[in-house]
Every structure is written in structure tokens, then in C-alpha cells.
């Protein structure tokens, strides 16, 4: 039984450039999914808060489905099931972004829904009273405030997606985890390489939450503390 840290360190140092290349893949997957989740989630939350009963029921069903089914099952369902049934040929990379984005949209819609509901109802009424249409009032009065309030929730959502993105390795996306595995298969230093992958994820989540904290300070409206 080899118990040498030097061999592990050697594998880590040699594999580092290759594994760090996966950071870009991970970041594109995460940012893509977050962005897709933001766009869809915003629409869903508006439909859920201001929509009629049918819309509310449909968005509720959507959120229930995507929050209740595990990521791995959804990845397999979309990649092996749906693409096969539709005779589509899309890359695992693309499917991963879509699936993570769909799941994230369900969570983000709930984050934003909470933010919208926390804005006093009187604001919408006042906007209507000075002649704004519903759409205008929501776009220019409610959403700008709700987005600011939702930043801490998003920061959480970012860390969750970042960590979940490791699961896309199951479809063969060449992100950090997959690359750590490639190097481990060659050098047999599984422990040290997975540890390295873990720390890269730790740094990425930490940096991301710091950046979002800065963003929150930056977009805060002066003298309008909440």
C-alpha cells in the first residue's frame, strides 16, 4: 500500500492545468443556467403573483415538478429520453445547461415571488392611480425593487447550482469533476484529485457569493434602505 503524499502532490500539480481548464466549462454551465433560470423564473413569478387561476395552477405545477424530481433523473430523462423520442442530437453540455436552467427557474421564481410579495401592495395601486398600465407598473416600479431584494436568495441559488453542476459529469460534460476523474484514472491518485476538485468548487462558490454581495451594495438605492 502506497501511502505517499508526494505522489499525490505530483499528480495534483501535473493535472492542475487540465483540471483548471474545466473551470471555464463549469462557469459557462453555471452562468448559462442561472441566466436561463432568471429569465424563465421572472416570467413564472409574475405569472404566479399576478396571473389568473389557470396560470397560477400551471406555474405551481411546473415548480412542483422541477423542485421535486432529482437533477440526475432529469438529466437522464432529457438527454436519453426526450432527445431520443424527439430524434434530436444535442450535446450533453447544452442539455446540462437547459436542465439546470429549468430547475433553477423553478427555484428562482419562488425567490422572486417572495421578493415581489414583500413590496407593499400600495405601490402597485399608486402606480395605477397615476395612470401607469399594469405591465408598466410591474416593469418599472415593482420588478426593479424585487430584483434588488432577491439578490441574497440568488446568492444561495448560485452556490447550489455551482455544486449541482458537478452532477453533469454523469452525462460526460468535461467540467472540473470529469477532468479530475480523467487525471485520477491515469495516476490512481483519486483522493488528492477529488480533494483538489472540491477546493476548486469551494473557491468558486466563495468568490461568487462575494461578487454578488458587492453587486448588492452597488445597486442599492441610496437613502432607500430596506
Amino acid at each position: 500500500m502506497h501511502f505517499s503524499i508526494t505522489a499525490g502532490l505530483k499528480a495534483v500539480i501535473e493535472g492542475l492545468p487540465y483540471i483548471l481548464g474545466g473551470v471555464w466549462v463549469t462557469l459557462v454551465v453555471v452562468v448559462g443556467a442561472l441566466f436561463m433560470g432568471l429569465v424563465l423564473g421572472t416570467l413564472l413569478s409574475i405569472a404566479h403573483v399576478y396571473g389568473n387561476r389557470v396560470l397560477r395552477g400551471l406555474t405551481g405545477l411546473y415548480v412542483w415538478f422541477f423542485r421535486g424530481v432529482p437533477l440526475l433523473v432529469l438529466l437522464f430523462l432529457f438527454y436519453f429520453g426526450l432527445l431520443g423520442a424527439l430524434h434530436l442530437d444535442l450535446s450533453p453540455f447544452f442539455v446540462s445547461i437547459v436542465v439546470l436552467g429549468l430547475i433553477s427557474s423553478a427555484y428562482q421564481s419562488q425567490i422572486l415571488r417572495g421578493a415581489i410579495l414583500s413590496i407593499p401592495e400600495g405601490q402597485l395601486k399608486a402606480a395605477r392611480a397615476i395612470g401607469m398600465s399594469d405591465t408598466k407598473a410591474i416593469t418599472f416600479i415593482i420588478l426593479p425593487q424585487a430584483f434588488r431584494l432577491a439578490i441574497p436568495g440568488w446568492s444561495n441559488e448560485y452556490t447550489i447550482i455551482m455544486k449541482n453542476s458537478a452532477v453533469t459529469y454523469a452525462l460526460g460534460v468535461a467540467e472540473i469533476m470529469a477532468r479530475a476523474n480523467h487525471v485520477a484514472a491515469r495516476t490512481y491518485q483519486h483522493f488528492w484529485l477529488y480533494l483538489l476538485a472540491g477546493f476548486i468548487f469551494l473557491i468558486l462558490t466563495y468568490a461568487g457569493t462575494k461578487l454578488l454581495g458587492l453587486l448588492q451594495k452597488r445597486v442599492a438605492i441610496k437613502g432607500y434602505a430596506r
Binding site: 455551482m162 455544486k163 452532477v167 469533476m177 476523474n181 477529488y194 472540491g198 468548487f201 469551494l202
Partner: peptide, 11 residues
């Protein structure tokens, strides 16, 4: 909390 669960399981 910082390591993805998949990484932990693999470890």
C-alpha cells in the same frame, strides 16, 4: 457545505 455532494461521495 462547500464541496459538491458528488465530490464528497467520490472521496
Amino acid at each position: 457545505r462547500g464541496f459538491p455532494l458528488l465530490v464528497q461521495l467520490y472521496l
